[in-house]
Amino acid sequence: MNQLARRWKREWPLHFMVVPALIFLVLFSYIPMAGILMAFQKYIPTKGLFGSPMVGLKHFKYLLDYPDIGRIVFNTLYIATMKIIAGLVVPITIAILLNELRQEWMKRTFQTMVYLPHFLSWVLLSGIIIDVLSPSTGIINQILGLFGAKPIFFLGDNKWFPYVMVITDVWKEFGFGTIIYLAALTNINPSLYEAAEIDGAGRWKQTINVTLPGMMPIIILMLTLNIGNVLNAGFDQIFNLYSPQVYESGDVIDTFVYRMGIEQAQYGFATAVGLLKSVVSFILISVSYIMAYRFANYRIF
């Protein structure tokens, strides 16, 4: 008990600093979970959460019979999977290239430039992207026009829209991932490069045989942790860039929930979809943490 009291006396300021975050978490994450009850109700706003009639699993049955649910789930998995893959390959490549730069000022300048979009919201970036990709005045279509190509409606064509989502998301976030992989590169023993150079390995073979194996633990960790996000295709981005013209290829679970719940006032059905997605995401996150512990020796506690 004396040891526990001494430890508490030494660490109480740290626990006190956590209190605001805990209050925020309870207010905005745990208390709103009472709304899950709407998934089993015919929710009527005037009767409130505890006065609306119960309908059991009706909304879940309707979800399984919904004609577009297969396409919506496919869009979500397709876009999210491409984002996860590109979100690994691009930052790893850029980190390795930056690591090869010998001028520190050039490395820091480029790193700052690619990191900046991470701090900008999709509300702001969507306006920029819409202007850049405009079929009439956008700079991309103007450049294509110089080569005789016809204007492409990137944000209104189902063939192009998913790839635009992936490319713009990678452009926004790869700077943050680059920093993670640059930190992993600093943990590689320089003597390994010296030994490889003595054996006659050039820069390419050093990258294949020393750099990538040295980065592999963090690569495996990031990959396994991203498994939990496979049902999160990026609501903020897609909501600000999509339109009814591209529902066929761009409508994902989160945007579908928004339309059903906010625009069409089907509160119970939208809650049921969101609850089912949350349960599946929880399972995937749990599996990803188990895999991260097994393959990368990563644990939270």
Results as ranks from 00 to 15, higher is better:
Asn158Trp: 02
Ala80Ile: 02
Ser121Met: 09
Lys172Val: 01
Ile92Pro: 01
Lys159Ser: 14
Ala184Arg: 03
Val123Thr: 14
Phe147Asn: 10
Lys205Trp: 12
Asp199Ile: 11
Met82Phe: 14
Leu133Gln: 01
Arg203Glu: 11
Phe153Pro: 00
Ile188Leu: 08
Leu144His: 02
Gly200Ile: 11
Met106Leu: 15
Glu194Thr: 08
Glu197Asp: 12
Val89Tyr: 02
Gln206Cys: 09
Ile79His: 00
Thr109Tyr: 06
Thr81Asn: 02
Thr168Asn: 05
Glu173Leu: 10
Lys107Leu: 10
Arg102Asp: 01
Val210Leu: 04
Leu98Lys: 04
Phe110Met: 13
Asp157His: 04
Gln206Tyr: 06
Asn141Met: 03
Gly127Met: 13
Ala184Asn: 06
Asn187Tyr: 06
Glu194Asp: 15
Ala80Met: 01
Leu155Gly: 03
Val89Asn: 08
Leu120Gln: 09
Thr186Leu: 10
Ile94Glu: 02
Trp171Ala: 05
Ile152Pro: 00
Val89His: 06
Ile180Tyr: 02
Val164Lys: 00
Gln142Ala: 11
Val123Ser: 13
Thr207Arg: 08
Trp204Val: 15
Trp204Gly: 08
Ile208Lys: 12
Ser121Val: 08
Thr81Phe: 13
Gln206Gly: 11
Leu182Tyr: 07
Asn99Tyr: 01
Leu120Met: 15
Lys150Ala: 15
Leu182Asp: 03
Phe119Val: 06
Thr178Val: 12
Thr186Ile: 12
Met113Arg: 01
Ile179Phe: 10
Trp105Thr: 13
Gly156Leu: 11
Asn99Thr: 06
Ala201Thr: 03
Phe154Asn: 00
His118Gln: 12
Phe174Pro: 00
Gly177Glu: 00
Leu101Cys: 04
Trp160Arg: 04
Pro190Leu: 10
Tyr115His: 02
Ile208Asp: 03
Glu100Thr: 14
Ile84Leu: 14
Ala95Leu: 05
Trp171Ser: 04
Pro135Tyr: 07
Met113Trp: 07
Leu97Trp: 09
Asp157Leu: 11
Ile167Tyr: 03
Phe154Gln: 01
Tyr115Val: 05
Leu185Lys: 05
Ile198Val: 15
Val132Met: 13
Val90Phe: 09
Leu101Ala: 04
Ile198Ala: 08
Asn99Phe: 08
Leu98Pro: 00
Gly138Glu: 02
Trp171Tyr: 04
Asn189Glu: 14
Ala195Ile: 08
Ile129Gly: 04
Leu116Pro: 00
Gly87Thr: 03
Thr137Lys: 14
Tyr115Glu: 02
Pro117Phe: 08
Pro151Gln: 10
Ile143Ala: 13
